[in-house]
């Protein structure tokens, strides 16, 4: 690599490493999961503050879902809905795809306030 290319590669490499480092060390609380029932916020869980996995049950007007919280992830382990799509989806740990239990109008998503 010639001098100028090397200069930019090193500069950008250092900047990228710095940025990623800062984000990983001091990033925002994107690890917060929010549970919504019928569009209204039901409960938020800081997934970064979970030491031991625990479960709780969400009672909705249409039925119940048992939610299990683990360090960095959240899942529905049991529900009295007919298709069990929310249970089959398993654990989520990022904001890509929320867990949705359509019959109970329950949504669990990560990373949004």
């Amino acid at each position: 690599m010639k001098g100028k290319t090397l200069f930019w590669v090193v500069l950008f490499g250092a900047l990228a490493a710095l940025g990623a480092g800062i984000y990983l060390l001091h990033g925002p609380a994107v690890r917060s999961a929010a549970i919504y029932v019928d569009g209204a916020l039901y409960r938020t869980v800081d997934l970064g503050a979970v030491a031991e996995p625990y479960s709780f049950t969400v009672e909705t007007p249409d039925g119940w879902n048992t939610v299990q919280v683990s360090p960095g992830s959240i899942r529905v382990t049991d529900a009295d809905c007919p298709h069990q799509d929310c249970v089959k989806q398993g654990a989520i740990s990022d904001g890509a795809i929320p867990i949705v239990c359509l019959p109970h109008r329950l949504v669990i998503r990560i990373g949004e306030p």
């Binding site: 900047l15 490493a17 710095l18 940025g19 990623a20 800062i22 984000y23 001091h26 990033g27």
Partner: peptide, 8 residues
């Protein structure tokens, strides 16, 4: 706070 991550 997303700034550094978006920069990288």
């Amino acid at each position: 706070w997303y700034g550094p991550a978006l920069l990288a």
